Computed example of a mutant assay.
Amino acid sequence: MYELNGIAIWSLQALAIDFAIIIALFVSLKFIKGWVSNLHANDEITERDNFAFGISFAGGLAALAIVLTGVSSGSFAPSLSQEALLMGGYGLLAIVLIKLGHFFQDKVALPKVSLHSEIAKGNTTASLIDFGHVVSVAVVIRSALLWVATEGWHGLPIVIAAFIIANIALLLVSQYRVQLFKRTNRSGDCLQQAIVDGNLAVGVRYAGFLIGSALAVTAASGIAPYAADNLLVSLTSWALSALVSLVVFILLHLLTIKIILAGCDISDEVNRQKNVGVATISAAISFAIGISMATLLGA
C-alpha cells in the first residue's frame, strides 16, 4: 500500500471523505435549523441581527461537532464506500437524535415556555438554555457512541437505548434545577418565568449546570463495562452508573460552590440581582466538576 510520510494513501482518502461529509453536515444544519424554527437563518443573523438565534445556531454546530468526534473515533471501515456510508449515516442520525433530545428537554423539562418563540423574539436567556440543552444531549450521545465497543451498525440499538436513558437522566437534572429555583427564589417566580423575563444570569447558570451534568454522565462509560453478549446487564449497569454519577456531581457542585463563593447568597445574586458574574462562576464550577469526572472516570 502506498504511503505518504508514514500515512497510507488509502487512509488519506478516507480522511478526505470524512471531512467532506462533516462539512456537508455542518452546512445542512443551517437549513435544518431554519426549517425547524420556521425562520430564515440568513435573515435572522444578518438582517435582524438576532443574537439569540446566533447563539442557538452555534449550539447546534457545537453539538454536532461533539457527536461527530464519537462517530469518527476508531478505525476506518473496510472500504471507502462503507466509510462514507457510516460517517454520513451516523452523522444524519446524530442530527436526528440531537433534535429529538432537544425537543424532549424543551417540551418536558420546560413546558411553560416556548424556547423557539422566545429565541425568535431575540431572548438571549432562552438561547442560552437552548445551547445548554443541545450541547448536553450531544455529550451524552458521544458518550454512548464511545461506550459501545462495536464497529459498524451493530451497536446502533444500544446507542439509541443509552441515549434514551441519558435523556431521562438529564430530565431529572432539569427538574432538580426547576424545583431548586422555585424553593430558593424569594419572589415566588418560577424558572420558566425568569427565562421569559430575560434573566441572563439564570440562563448562564442553568446551561452550565446542564452541560456539567452531561459530562458527569459520561463517567458511566468508564464505570459500567460494555458486554456485547449481555446487553441488558450492560444497559442496566450504565443507567445505574449514570444516576450515581449525577448524584455525586450534584453533591460535589454544592460543596465546591459553597467553598468558593462562601458568604455569598448565590440564589439571590442570580435570581433577583441577575448577577451574570456569579452565574458564570457557578457555570464554570459545574463544567469543571463534570469534565473532571469525565476525565477521571470516563472511558
Rank of each mutant, 00 (worst) to 15 (best):
G198I: 02
A16T: 15
S114L: 02
Q13P: 00
I21D: 11
V178E: 03
L110G: 00
L64F: 08
G101T: 09
A239T: 06
L232R: 09
I211V: 14
L61K: 08
N123K: 03
R142F: 10
W10A: 15
L261F: 11
I129C: 00
K112C: 01
L39V: 03
L92E: 04
F51L: 12
F53G: 01
A228P: 07
A242T: 10
A63Q: 02
V108W: 12
V247N: 01
G132P: 04
A279G: 10
P111A: 10
N199G: 04
A194G: 02
A288C: 14
G155C: 06
A126Q: 00
L180E: 15
V71Q: 03
P111V: 06
T295Q: 10
L296W: 12
N5Y: 12
Q13T: 10
S81N: 07
N167M: 09
V148L: 03
S241Y: 05
N271P: 00
T184P: 01
G298L: 06
G122N: 09
S81T: 13
A109R: 00
V248G: 05
L215Q: 04
D49R: 14
S72Q: 11
K107V: 12
I223W: 14
F26S: 13
E269G: 03
S28E: 06
D265H: 14
E47G: 05
A52M: 06
A294S: 15
Q273F: 07
L4E: 09
S117M: 06
A58R: 04
G203F: 00
I23D: 03
